[in-house]
Design a protein around this nucleic acid. Structure first.
Length: 570
DNA sequence: GCCGTTTTCGGCCCGACTGTTTTCAGTCG
């Protein structure tokens, strides 16, 4: 069982307890444990084997025992009992805006509603408005909540949301009186998916800002409009919230709305211990405001250095900050090249020269032209003779071109039996060899793990591309034991890719952190098939930052000389 | 249910908004 599965179960327990009207702190304890486990880079199984479950923050005697039961039997009596008490289907109602545990229970008790269908039927018959504490407006809000859920139900890729946010910010800067403007929320933390876009503004004329915002061409529907907060649904199907605050509140609000929620709670708890109250308006000692204009004020007030947004997940960043061991995160400006780009030779859109020109424009010192190997027919995989032709073209270009160095590479398939799709004789001619899986996804975990490990044991392989193979929201990762994979890569000195393609973002952040702990060097690559996609680099850098990676952990921050040293054959 | 540089028991983050209410409960971020 995977960490995510444990987290899901604990979260389900929390939700069930919430519906049962249990002690809210108990509920919170389960939520917290779920959140912590989700963010662990090490597998729960390994931790349990060491007998250290109780050392996980938020996991005490009771939750540890439940995890042990799950590990041992694959079942959990406690959860099964809870499920008996709370009717199935009630949990799904919690996804609807404005329906929380209390309302869900009320709906069930009074009207026997335990599914979305029954709720919609009851709404149509106006049976909700007669319930205690409810009226016509509540009914309408719930109806709207269901619609909204259907429209924007799933989270959106960061790669989709970020350009929308950037467009809004640029429009508001151009056409309305904003003094400061910044995207907040999970977008600012560079989470791989975001639920909505939150934007924070300082302005002397908030009404004007709101008018421009709600009047943007991309706005399909205005969900709410007020002087301090407005909310719209865009034609992209994503909700955008805009908040206007006073200049002296901006820092506190920025911190507050950036989250994560759990990070904020932890920070405020530190504040309480120091006799401070921290909220979105500022930092207060008693009634006296002692800060809040700059974001750093919040951290300073609790005796911490600035913590970058990407780390704010309450995954140990506060402890690290206290002890002065926050990483100095890698930045986009540190990136000196992109080592995984497809050219026209296989399934890319552009010639090598076009890619090189673009890479120069981006200020890169080197670029890796990496195409598919021969068995990838549908993706234009290169035959050995075509690959030789490509290598020759790159050698010729390198003599001609100044300021940038082109690396000849291949993304060579690891076949089902773990062997590589090109023979060693040709692999050793290449500057960079990236191994990858593109077929035979449906193997069991043991076989898949063995297959990949065998693949990267080839002495000519430098890097493993998109190590888990997941496509966010579309395809699950291969069934692979990532822990074992990381250990094998560490042992062999294989580097792991952070594929910056918005749908991949693979290796995911929590594993990056684990890989770093094992001393693995990572490579951030766009896997671009088109010049435009070379801009994806920032998403990969975001993953790296969320994985606590520093410049020294990333191959493509190295100088050309260091790069070649690292790629040299053993 | 968890946790301890105020505590092994008694705390546990903070405020806005909404709709339904005469003082607040529920939900959300």
């Amino acid at each position: 069982m995977e960490n995510l599965e444990f987290a899901r179960i604990l979260r389900e327990i929390a939700e069930l307890l919430e519906i049962k009207n249990e002690n809210p702190f108990k509920v919170r304890a389960y939520y917290r444990a779920a959140q912590v486990i989700e963010g662990l880079s090490e597998s729960i199984n390994t931790i349990a084997e060491r007998g250290e479950l109780r050392k996980i923050p938020g996991v005490g005697e009771s939750i540890a025992e439940k995890i042990e039961e799950l590990l041992k039997t694959g079942r959990l009596k406690y959860l099964e009992e809870l499920k008996k008490e709370v009717p199935e289907g009630l949990l799904s109602l919690l996804e609807i805006q404005d329906i929380g545990p209390k309302t869900a229970l009320l709906l069930y008790k009074e009207l026997g509603i335990n599914s979305m269908e029954k709720l919609e039927k009851a709404l149509a018959e106006h049976r909700l408005r007669d319930l205690p504490g409810m009226g016509e407006k509540t009914e309408e809000n719930i109806r709207r909540g269901i619609e909204l859920l259907k429209e924007t139900g799933t989270r959106m890729l960061l790669g989709t949301a970020l350009p929308v946010a950037e467009e809004i910010i640029s429009e508001l800067k151009k056409n309305s009186p904003v003094e400061k403007i910044e995207a907040t929320g999970s977008l600012r933390r560079f989470r791989e998916t975001v639920g909505d876009i939150d934007i924070l503004v300082v302005s002397k004329n908030s009404e004007k800002v709101m008018d421009v915002f709600t009047g943007l061409a991309m706005v399909r529907e205005v969900l709410a409009k007020g002087p301090t907060r407005s909310s719209v649904l865009t034609t992209y199907g994503i909700q955008v919230d805009l908040r206007v605050v006073k200049p002296d509140q901006f820092g506190a609000a920025l911190h507050y709305f950036t989250g994560s929620k759990n990070h904020n709670i932890a920070i405020r708890e530190l504040g309480v211990k120091k006799g401070l109250k921290i909220n979105e308006y500022g930092i207060f000692r008693g009634k006296k405001k002692i800060g809040g204009e700059e974001e750093i004020d919040v951290f300073k007030s609790v005796g911490l250095p600035y913590i970058p947004p990407e780390l704010r997940e309450n995954r140990g960043e506060i402890e690290a900050a206290k002890e002065g061991r926050l990483p100095v995160l890698v930045e986009c400006a540190d990136i000196k090249g992109d080592l995984h780009i497809h050219s026209k030779y296989s399934d890319g859109e552009n010639t090598i020269e076009e890619i090189v020109r673009k890479a120069k424009q981006m200020g890169y010192e080197y670029v890796g032209i990496v195409d598919h190997s021969r068995s990838m027919r549908f993706a234009g995989g290169l035959s050995i003779s075509d690959l030789k032709k490509k290598i020759n073209e790159i050698r010729r270009l390198n003599e001609k071109i100044k300021d940038i160095t082109i690396l000849a590479g291949a993304e060579v398939d690891i076949k089902v039996d773990g062997s590589l799709d090109y023979p060693d004789e040709i692999l050793k001619e290449l500057d960079i060899v990236i191994a990858a899986i593109h077929s035979g996804f449906k193997m069991d975990q043991e076989k898949m793990t063995e297959r990949i490990i065998k693949g990267i044991e080839n002495e000519y392989v430098h890097i493993l591309a998109h190590p888990t193979g997941r496509l966010i929201g579309k395809r699950d990762p291969y069934r692979v034991d990532v822990e074992r994979l990381i250990m094998a890569a560490a042992k062999r000195g294989i580097m792991l890719e952070i594929n910056a393609y918005p749908e991949r973002l693979d290796l995911p952040d929590i594993y990056c952190r684990r890989a770093k702990d094992e001393g693995i060097i990572m490579v951030i690559s766009t896997d671009a098939h088109h010049l435009d996609q070379m801009r994806f680099m920032k998403f990969g850098v975001g993953v790296a930052r969320r994985g606590w990676l520093e410049k020294k952990n990333i191959l493509n921050t190295f100088s050309l000389k260091e790069l070649f040293k690292k790629l040299k054959r053993i």
